[in-house]
Design a binder for these strands. Sequence first.
DNA 1: AATAGGTACAACCGCATGTAG
DNA 2: CCTACATGCGGTTGTACCTAT
Length: 275
Amino acid sequence: MGRPPCCDKANVKKGLWTPEEDAKILAYVSNHGVGNWTQVPKKAGLNRCGKSCRLRWTNYLRPDLKHEEFTEQEEQLIIQYHAAIGSRWSLIAKHLPGRTDNDVKNYWNTKLKKKLAKMGIDPVTHKPISKILSDYESISCLSNNHQIRSLDQNITNSFSSQSYSWGQKNSVDPLLVTDITEEEHSYQGFLAADSPPQIQEKSSQFQLIGANHSNSKVTDDKFGMPESKSAAKNTVTSSYYDYEPSSVNSFVKTLLDRDNEIQLDFPAFDDILDY
DNA sequence: AATAGGTACAACCGCATGTAG
DNA sequence: CCTACATGCGGTTGTACCTAT
């Protein structure tokens, strides 16, 4: 048995909101403030689910929301944050004043994904599509044994570049993960020069590079690197790429070991890595 | 002018998480 | 600690609008 529905779905209106309904929400909020959304439909005289009222307010009616086009700066930030933390839209939106997670998600899905693809960048991994394709082409030239190893390595890389760290679910600062080589990141110029702190993966190492924190537009100190570690290049040794594809268990163990090492070196990530 | 296809964005859904009692 | 409820979140769907044919 699942969770009971939050409201009587058969008797509530769905679909687009009318200006009259919006006015009722606005009137209610100005009189009673925000909160207790389950009571809002009854008190505001709306035939809507409370959850629907909350979403209408948070995604559209809030007075602090911007309704104009995304700027180039916002666009670049979204790309950087997405590269660092993936589709954590609410976290990304927190760093774009006046934008909601829904805004950011829609903008990504409708514009930015296509824009990156047009530039030859895989929007999932943020790596050049040509590089991904050449990796797979090379598989066909290898022996069976090598094929398996190469494929495993690609899967490993895919994991690392897609979510970078599964433990970053609470992270706020984007730790932009990039590759080292220029050709692999020919689109770097597209990104802001004044970018957030970055993590670089290099062979068996994680590197937290420069990214003078004071330059970063992101200011949530809770997850910030300790000054001594973030200001200069720091290296966290990792067994991540030591992964031998002998079994799923060893792969998982390697991931956990890697996170343990990061945890030891960067206590600030404790709750991020707590999964 | 009609309509098919594409796009952008608002809204919904279901699960996760937080919290008060 | 447990339960019930409110809220947050990310993925998905629905729909209005635009453009090409």
